[in-house]
Amino acid sequence: MAEEIGFVIEPMEQFEVTPLFGGEAVHWYTPTNVTLWLALTVLSVALLMVAASRGRALVPSRVQSMAELTYGFVHQMIEDVTGKDGVRYFPYIMTIFVFILFANLLGLIPWAFTTTSHIAVTAFLALAVFLTVTALGFVLHGLSFLKMFWIEAAPLALRPALAIIELISYFVRPVSHSIRLAGNMMAGHAVLKVFAGFAGALGVASVVPIAGLVAMYAFELLVAVIQAYVFTILTCVYLKDALHPHH
C-alpha cells in the first residue's frame, strides 16, 4: 500500500530490538542495540558526573559546572517538593533523572535507538518507583499510610467515594507515569521519521518537511529534557506522598 504512493514510511522500525552481533533470537542475555545504547547512557553519565568533576576545582570548568548544575537542580527539586527528609533519597532520584535525561538525549542522535521509548524500560522505572514508594509509605507510617485515601477534610458521606477515586488514581500512577515517557519519546521519534519519509519523497519540495524536521528536532530536544524533569518531579511528588501521607 505504501509502495503505491511512492515512498515508504516505517516509523516503528527504529524501535526494533535487534541483536548487535548478528543472529535472530533475542535471549535475555543477548547483547542488543538496547545494550549498546544503555551502555552509552552509562558512559555519558560517567563522563559528565565523574570525569568532569575529577578536577574538584574551586572555580569549575564548563563541564564541571554542568555536572554541578545537574546536581544542584535535582537536589533543589527534591528539597522543594519533598522537604528536607526527602534528601536521603537523593542518589536514587538522581539516578533516575540522569538515566532518563541521557537516554532521551542520546536517542535523538540520528540512527540511535531510544531506550526510553520502550514501554518495558519506562514501565520498569515507573513500577520500581511505585513499589518503592508504596513500601516506603507502609514502612514509615504503618497502616496509617492508608489514611492517605481517607480524606478527612471531605464530608463523611463523600469519603468512601473519594477513597475509591483516590485508590484508582493511586494505582493509575505507574501507568501514566510510564506511558507518558514512552509515549512522548515514541511519538516524537515517529513524527521525525514521518517527516523524514516525506523529505525523501518530495524531491525539491522536500525543503518544507526538512524545515519541519529541524523545528521538530528542536522541539524534541526540549521534550527530552522536560520529560526527564517531569518523570523525576513526579517521582518526587509520589515520594512526598509516602513521606507525608496526611495532606
Binding site: V17, V26, H27, W28, Y29, T30, T32, V34, T35, L38, A39, T41, V42, V45, P91, Y92, T95, V98, F99, T115, H118, A120, V121, F124
Partner: peptide, 14 residues
Amino acid sequence: NQLFWLVIALVVIY
C-alpha cells in the same frame, strides 16, 4: 533482554 540490561545499567549508574 531489555529489563536485564536496564537493571545492569541502572545499578551501574547508581
